[in-house]
């Protein structure tokens, strides 16, 4: 079976770290900024960054609807931090004009863990990822306030939901791409491989 091709939305954010992590997890990874660049992708990562900027650029450059169509197509999508906000059906503490793609039936609260001085690292146990806890890097991180019945909660931290999955859409409050441990990316690449079958 050929290597899956996974795009990383490159409007703004920590794109390079995701490209590296996906490469380590045996996927072909490339940055995506234009609607036509979504063609031929087996999966998509929405990186960490500033979600209000990302949303605004997606609207301005005509990416919002093509990205929504990509999510609806059932191809796997993984969002970290700002990316988690982007795949939320509902958002709290965002800007009024802030658009999300949706994809996971959940309410996400932006910057829920606080400002930068409250940003932290902690070990997080994730259901479905063997080998012990991953290194959770939480930066002005969101959390999941509530989820619908079809959503699987994969991890919680301090009583708050920080990793979820609904079908082929995956989201984490934290940034595995900032660590050398690429098990979450490997989990996602595996999701992409299965979806292609």
């Amino acid at each position: 079976m050929t290597t899956p091709t996974i795009g990383v939305l490159a409007l703004q954010g920590d794109v390079r770290e995701h490209l590296t992590a996906l490469g380590t997890a045996d996927a072909l990874a490339r940055p995506v900024r234009r609607p036509q660049e979504l063609a031929g992708l087996d999966g998509l990562v929405i990186p960490g960054g500033e979600s209000t900027t990302m949303s605004k650029l997606a609207v301005t450059f005509g990416m919002l609807e093509p990205l929504r169509a990509f999510v609806r197509s059932g191809k796997p999508v993984y969002g970290t931090c700002a990316g988690m906000i982007m795949v939320a059906d509902k958002l709290l503490d965002g800007r009024e004009d802030q658009e999300t793609l949706g994809g996971i039936d959940m309410i996400v609260r932006r910057n829920a863990f606080g400002r930068q001085n409250e940003s932290f690292e902690a070990a997080v146990e994730i259901a479905g990822i063997p080998g012990g806890p991953v290194e959770g890097v939480f930066i002005r991180a969101p959390w999941v306030e509530s989820v619908g019945a079809a959503v699987e909660v994969l991890a919680t931290y301090d009583g708050h939901t920080v990793a979820v999955r609904q079908g082929n859409v995956l989201a984490t409050s934290f940034h595995p791409e900032l660590t050398g441990d690429h098990r979450v990316h490997a989990y996602f690449v595996d999701l992409v491989r299965r979806a292609r079958r």
Partner: peptide
């Protein structure tokens, strides 16, 4: 990266990784 710290067992704020990681989130921006 040779300076990459290991994750503490208890939550820790102000680490090199959350400080540098914050800037990584600003990339491509103004």
């Amino acid at each position: 990266m040779s300076t990459t710290p290991t994750t503490p067992q208890h939550p820790e704020t102000g680490t090199a990784r959350v400080k540098r990681g914050m800037a990584e989130q600003l990339k491509g921006g103004v």
